[in-house]
Amino acid sequence: MKLTLRFFAVALPLLLAACVPQTVRMKGDAGLLNAQVAREQALAHVDHWMLQGRLGISNGKDGGSGSFSWTQKGEQYEFVLRGPAISGMDFRLSGGPDGALLEGLKGGPLRGPDAEALMRKALGWEVPLGDLRAWVLGLRADSGPADLSFGENRLPSLLQQDGWTVDYRAWDSTRQPPLPTKVYAGKPPYTVKLAIESWQFQ
């Protein structure tokens, strides 16, 4: 069964659509890059966490939004999307190294070898879920070279990797190390926008 993003046919909420991007960016000097390496080392083994917030998606033509939760327990994950964009239905993506399961489809659950392949088959999405696991923490993924620019807060502002541009719009600097609270990832025509309302670590 082939689905498209048409079931997400509602406008993105103002929370995700009206934010003004950071305009001051600078290439990393030795101090900034060393601080980023320290952040990455501090978070390298943090693999049990849960975040909640708002999600906006678009394929350049169709788009929508909803609330979401993402639970990571080592290599096992569960991603749940809720909201009026999907007529009150919950979509649940779960899995790990042995495969992925997508529930909430009208035709019943769908299984696949991995989350990215399953989302591509079921929804027509191109979402780098493996890399996003690192990006959502403000880290460079281990999938290849990455270019970083930093904002006035001396935290990553723009990350370019695997053909995607990750724009960090806001950070929670009360945490040590700081964590992103607004993450926009784009690779034309796809965009994924996360507004993170809470982080929990185990």
Score class of each variant (00 low, 15 high):
residue 168 Y to W: 07
residue 55 L to D: 02
residue 148 L to C: 09
residue 46 V to R: 11
residue 17 A to D: 15
residue 98 D to K: 12
residue 15 L to T: 13
residue 38 A to S: 14
residue 56 G to R: 04
residue 100 A to R: 12
residue 12 L to E: 11
residue 193 K to S: 13
residue 9 A to T: 08
residue 17 A to T: 14
residue 22 Q to L: 12
residue 112 G to L: 05
residue 184 Y to V: 13
residue 122 A to N: 05
residue 26 M to T: 07
residue 75 E to G: 12
residue 186 G to K: 12
residue 57 I to Y: 00
residue 163 G to P: 11
residue 195 A to S: 13
residue 143 S to L: 09
residue 198 S to N: 13
residue 103 E to Y: 01
residue 10 V to F: 06
residue 186 G to C: 10
residue 41 Q to S: 14
residue 34 N to P: 00
residue 170 A to V: 06
residue 5 L to R: 00
residue 96 G to H: 02
residue 140 R to E: 10
residue 192 V to N: 03
residue 55 L to M: 02
residue 146 A to T: 07
residue 137 L to M: 15
residue 87 S to T: 14
residue 90 D to F: 01
residue 31 G to S: 11
residue 159 L to K: 03
residue 70 W to Y: 09
residue 132 L to G: 03
residue 33 L to H: 03
residue 67 S to M: 08
residue 44 A to H: 11
residue 194 L to F: 15
residue 26 M to E: 08
residue 2 K to P: 06
residue 129 L to S: 12
residue 14 L to T: 14
residue 118 L to H: 10
residue 183 V to I: 07
residue 50 M to T: 14
residue 74 G to M: 00
residue 138 G to N: 09
residue 87 S to K: 15
residue 109 P to C: 04
residue 171 W to Q: 08
residue 137 L to F: 14
residue 89 M to L: 13
residue 121 K to V: 05
residue 3 L to Y: 12
residue 13 P to Y: 09
residue 170 A to I: 01
residue 100 A to D: 13
residue 16 L to D: 01
residue 171 W to T: 08
residue 140 R to W: 06
residue 89 M to F: 10
residue 103 E to L: 11
residue 196 I to H: 04
residue 121 K to L: 10
residue 82 R to T: 13
residue 151 G to H: 02
residue 199 W to K: 04
residue 93 L to V: 00
residue 159 L to G: 00
residue 154 R to E: 05
residue 159 L to D: 02
residue 7 F to N: 07
residue 177 P to S: 06
residue 64 G to C: 05
residue 131 D to I: 06
residue 19 C to Q: 11
residue 71 T to H: 08
residue 103 E to N: 14
residue 19 C to Y: 09
residue 46 V to M: 10
residue 45 H to C: 08
residue 133 R to P: 03
residue 74 G to D: 04
residue 1 M to D: 03
residue 150 F to H: 02
residue 137 L to T: 05
residue 150 F to V: 03
residue 43 L to Q: 09
residue 61 K to C: 01
residue 143 S to H: 06
residue 172 D to T: 11
residue 60 G to M: 04
residue 200 Q to D: 07
residue 87 S to D: 11
residue 116 E to Q: 14
residue 188 P to D: 13
residue 101 L to G: 00
residue 69 S to G: 14
residue 201 F to W: 11
residue 184 Y to T: 04
residue 78 E to P: 05
residue 34 N to G: 11
residue 149 S to Y: 13
residue 116 E to Y: 07
residue 58 S to Y: 05
residue 71 T to M: 07
residue 180 P to C: 11
residue 157 S to E: 13
residue 135 W to L: 02
residue 175 R to K: 12
residue 46 V to P: 00
residue 11 A to L: 10
residue 102 L to C: 09
residue 114 D to S: 05
residue 79 F to E: 01
residue 49 W to P: 03
residue 30 A to V: 12
residue 108 G to C: 10
residue 64 G to P: 05
residue 138 G to V: 07
residue 187 K to E: 01
residue 163 G to T: 04
residue 56 G to I: 01
residue 194 L to A: 04
residue 173 S to Y: 00
residue 118 L to I: 04
residue 130 G to I: 02
residue 170 A to E: 12
residue 167 D to T: 08
residue 164 W to A: 03
residue 56 G to P: 05
residue 164 W to D: 03
residue 149 S to N: 04
residue 139 L to D: 07
residue 125 W to S: 02
